[in-house]
Nucleic acid binder design. Structure first.
Length: 273
DNA sequence: GTCTCCCTGTTC
DNA sequence: GAACAGGGAGAC
């Protein structure tokens, strides 16, 4: 599941490959994944040059020379695969951008949740309006103020707040669990009851864990690989996610698995009161 | 604000 | 052969 560190790793690995490439043929295999409709989508992309790749939350933005943005979201199972035009299509390929040279960029997505939206210049890219703060580039006090403000009017559990992309952009289920473990805060705690000292620890854990994961090029728990097809290594450093019933790395008591904010949730009831 | 649904590969 | 995995849109 690509979350912030995975999308950022994909961005960094793909940028030198796609920069200055001119799009030739566009092949759409899953009509509902693209916006606008497939014909217009393909026609508008053709002939455009890629000038940059940017990331916002879990969105990857392909910036075109016209100022248009191709906004990609990989959702659960999406992968971007850089390959030769002539190579056969992988199973579940939903979209292919062929470049004028021998290369192509493939969107492969078994669960078909991923999206690719072409948005005009100036227009705030769809899906990005209302997106919350970037956890790694927002100044600490500004971020804490925003998070506490959101928490104050929230009755639900703190994990739900960490997953809410309108507050913070980029945390998903894996990192939410890891952050709360590192901060020693139970995912079930009502957001509005989290203390200032705890928010401080949560903030530090967010920065630390996202940066650690970036250094290890993301978490390849399931499908994730970067733009060159290489897996990350942060799955080897996860302390609670996917460790149902295993002993807590800190206190040795069994980890608990439950459902919080509609998501499978791992935590240590002893270390995370 | 919270719940449902979209989807298929994997796990029990 | 069912349950599960889950980001975000849309419904409520």
């Amino acid at each position: 599941m690509p979350e912030l560190p995975e999308v950022e790793t994909i961005r960094r690995s793909l940028l030198p490959l796609v920069k200055e490439k001119v799009i030739g043929q566009v092949r759409v295999f899953l009509a509902k994944a693209v916006k606008p409709g497939p014909e217009q989508f393909a026609a508008e992309l053709k002939g455009k040059r890629i000038t940059d790749l940017q990331r916002r939350g879990k969105y990857l933005l392909v910036v075109l020379d016209t100022g248009q943005n191709l906004v990609l979201h990989l959702r659960m199972s999406g992968r971007l695969v850089w390959q030769n035009k002539e190579e056969p299509l992988a199973k579940h390929t939903t979209l292919v951008l062929d470049f004028l040279d021998a290369n192509s960029l493939h969107f492969v997505d078994p669960r078909k949740f991923g999206t690719a939206a072409l948005v005009p210049p100036a227009e705030p890219p769809t899906g990005l309006t209302g997106l919350g703060l970037e956890p790694l580039t927002t100044e600490k006090e500004q971020l804490l103020t925003a998070v506490k403000k959101a928490a104050a009017r929230r009755s639900g559990p703190v994990k739900g707040l960490l997953l809410d992309q309108r507050v913070l952009a980029g945390l998903g289920n894996i990192y939410a669990d890891e952050v709360l473990f590192a901060a020693g805060v139970s995912p079930l705690r009502p957001a509005r009851e989290v203390t200032t000292a705890e928010w401080e620890r949560i903030y530090c854990s967010i920065v630390e864990i996202l940066n650690q994961s970036l250094r290890h090029r993301g978490t390849s728990q399931r499908d994730y690989v970067d733009g060159r097809g290489e897996p990350g290594a942060f799955q080897n450093y996860l302390r609670v996610y996917g460790r149902k019933k295993e002993p807590c790395a800190h206190c040795g008591n069994p980890l608990v698995y439950t459902r919080v904010a509609g998501r499978g949730t791992h935590y240590c009831p002893v270390c995370q009161p």
